[in-house]
């Protein structure tokens, strides 16, 4: 009995090791943040410091979560930044300060994101094109559309909208992070969530099991599109305006968050919860380096070190867990 439990634990730790690692990384980064903040300013981070950090992290949390879902299916989405470009421009040019307008345009923007994801997904699955080719093309198209919607940075986002989505004076942002987490925890209990893993692990095997691989991969792109559109809304709210190039820098950051979050680029392994932690690490790292008085010139350098460290550590932990699982399996066989 104890043997069975132990091997199940081993199996779990194999699956969850990268996630645990993501939590550890976030913990280390938060600790470093508090430490350097206190060293520099001689008091603990203020409520404003926390709230603004959370609110700054929101666009990345959403866009990286979307990217994570696509990566889980062993694919990638280079158009996420372009979707953010277009959606924050749309919001900034069309949204008025009435509640119906804010709701309507939020929905339209999310729908635009979903539709873009659908196009990506269909081109990849039905068109049988490489995801990298498809999404690099849609990225350019979206960037062009964004520049057409908003030729120069500007537009306007209602102050009440900013107060809800990007309030740096209240921890409201935690609610949105919670929404992502709960959404994911629910999703992976449903068929779609399980199928995402199955397709990412082995598409042919999934197909043999009766999973509609095309539909699942397309769904991943649609989810990514919607998430990126939401990120565009958070970006617009945080800027109280639009910028047709504002989303571009989120593309690489989304991959950084996915890696730090422990999602494997070979698909089928990892969790969006980990990606959310990864997004937190990427966002906090800027502040850690700020309070540590590190010249921001070296910021990319440290981000790179952190990424490589995360990947190496992830490999070590996974192989450890694997060995453990194998070991206990062997032991259980022997006893049996």
């Amino acid at each position: 009995m104890s043997v069975v439990r132990r091997s199940r634990w081993s199996y779990l730790s194999l699956q969850q090791a990268p996630l645990l690692l993501a939590f550890v990384m976030l913990g280390i980064t938060v600790a470093a943040y508090v430490l350097f903040f206190d060293l520099r300013l001689h008091h603990l981070p203020t409520a404003f410091a926390w709230d603004s950090t959370i609110s700054n992290a929101l666009p990345l949390v959403f866009v990286a979560a979307g990217q994570g879902i696509v990566v889980l299916t062993r694919s990638l989405d280079l158009s996420v930044g372009g979707i953010m470009d277009l959606t924050n421009s749309l919001a900034a040019t069309h949204m008025h300060s009435s509640v119906p307008s804010m709701l309507l345009w939020s929905l339209i923007v999310l729908a635009v994101g979903g539709a873009t994801g659908l196009v990506n997904g269909l081109l990849v699955t039905v068109g049988r094109l490489q995801p990298i080719v498809v999404t690099i093309a849609t990225m350019s198209i979206l960037q062009g559309l964004a520049a057409w919607v908003l030729p120069q940075p500007g537009g306007n986002i209602p102050a009440s909208y900013t107060n809800i989505l990007a309030n740096s004076n209240s921890p409201l942002g935690l609610v949105f992070i919670g929404v992502v987490a709960v959404f994911w925890l629910l999703l992976r209990r449903f068929r779609l969530g399980i199928a995402l893993y199955a397709v990412g692990n082995d598409a042919e095997a999934a197909n043999a099991l009766g999973i509609n691989v095309r539909r699942i991969r397309t769904s991943a792109f649609v989810l990514s599109g919607i998430m990126s559109a939401a990120a565009g809304l958070f970006l617009a709210a945080g800027s109280s305006g639009g910028d047709a190039t504002g989303g571009d820098s989120y593309l690489l950051a989304s991959f950084a968050a996915v890696v730090l979050g422990g999602v494997s680029f070979f698909g089928g392994r990892g969790s969006v919860i980990g990606v959310v932690c990864g997004a937190g690490v990427v966002t906090l790292l800027v502040s850690v380096l700020f309070y540590a008085n590190v010249n921001s010139f070296y910021e990319s350098f440290y981000q790179g070190i952190f990424l490589i460290g995360a990947v190496l550590l992830g490999m070590v932990v996974t192989s450890l867990a694997q060995r453990r699982a194998r070991g206990s399996l062997r032991r259980s066989r022997r006893r049996w």
């Binding site: 903040f37 520099r40 300013l41 981070p45 203020t46 404003f48 410091a49 603004s52 950090t53 700054n56 900034a92 120069q152 940075p153 500007g154 537009g155 900013t162 990007a166 740096s168 970006l235 709210a237 945080g238 800027s239 109280s240 305006g241 639009g242 910028d243 190039t245 504002g246 820098s249 966002t283 800027v286 502040s287 700020f290 309070y291 921001s296």
Partner: peptide, 27 residues
């Protein structure tokens, strides 16, 4: 993020060449 950190550390003035004309507005 940097500007939020500058606010938290209590500078008197921020002189800025911005990455985006609108992207920093809320901060």
């Amino acid at each position: 993020s940097q500007m939020s950190d500058l606010i938290a550390s209590g500078v008197n003035a921020i002189v800025t060449d911005a990455a985006s004309p609108t992207g920093l507005n809320s901060v």
